[in-house]
């Protein structure tokens, strides 16, 4: 399987998963790279992303699988493709990999919590306390809402004050089976310590790992 490692940063974070698929498909055509199409009545280019990213979250580690029709050298692809992408999308590398997406287990998410007035007192400790035991939050599902405990889905969590009005959470969370929507971290803060709810939050996916915490490529 051919695989791309790419970044989705800046305003590109507002592109939905479908937007990204369509944009990549067209970028390949612009670059003159022919992607293998599915067989069938309505052929479409075969491409698949690991762990679809929510709108509004940046990422340094998106993985996309594809297959080319001819034996184009993979090393050439980042350079060719990067000239054909909209702002904020950037290919880091292209390589062969047999490591299946289902082997992904953890991911690192970096959340910056912005407080307009000032960071509440003892915010770091209080935030740590929230996540040091069972954290039950309401999650929207296909059939309404459900109460889930997100504590087991958090591998590790570091909290630092990074600027005058910013607290950062560096969390390693379950990427799939089951996944943890990083937005629920903020939901939990709002539920357990409402005064710590930030005025604005920025999130960035930074790395992905397999079950042995080896970087997944």
């Amino acid at each position: 399987m051919s695989r791309l490692l790419m970044r989705k940063t800046g305003n590109a974070k507002y592109l939905s998963h479908l937007d990204l698929m369509r944009t990549m498909q067209r970028a390949f055509v612009r670059a003159g790279l022919e992607i293998k199409h599915t067989q069938g009545f309505n052929p479409h280019p075969y491409m698949s992303f690991a762990l679809p990213l929510s709108v509004g979250i940046e990422s340094l580690c998106e993985l996309m699988d594809f297959e080319l029709d001819d034996a184009t050298e993979l090393e050439r692809i980042p350079c060719t493709l990067n000239q054909k992408l909209p702002a904020g999308l950037h290919i880091v590398s292209a390589y062969r990999s047999e490591n299946k997406f289902k082997n992904i287990k953890w991911l690192d998410i970096f959340c910056e919590l912005y407080y307009d007035d000032e960071v509440p007192e003892n915010a770091v400790t209080r935030l740590q306390n929230i996540f040091s035991k069972s954290v039950v939050v309401e999650k929207r599902t296909k059939r309404g809402t459900a109460q889930i405990d997100i504590f087991p889905l958090i591998g590790s969590l570091r909290i630092n004050r990074t600027a005058e009005k910013v607290v950062a959470i560096d969390a390693r969370i379950s990427a799939q089976d089951p996944s943890l929507n990083p937005g629920l971290l903020i939901t939990a803060i709002n539920k357990y310590e409402q005064s710590l709810t930030p005025d604005f939050t920025k999130m960035e996916r930074r790395e992905i790992y397999d079950a042995d915490l080896k970087v997944f490529r």
Partner: peptide, 12 residues
Amino acid sequence: KPARYIGGEYNE
């Protein structure tokens, strides 16, 4: 649909 308010498209 925030993507319609950001520009940055290919060929902009």
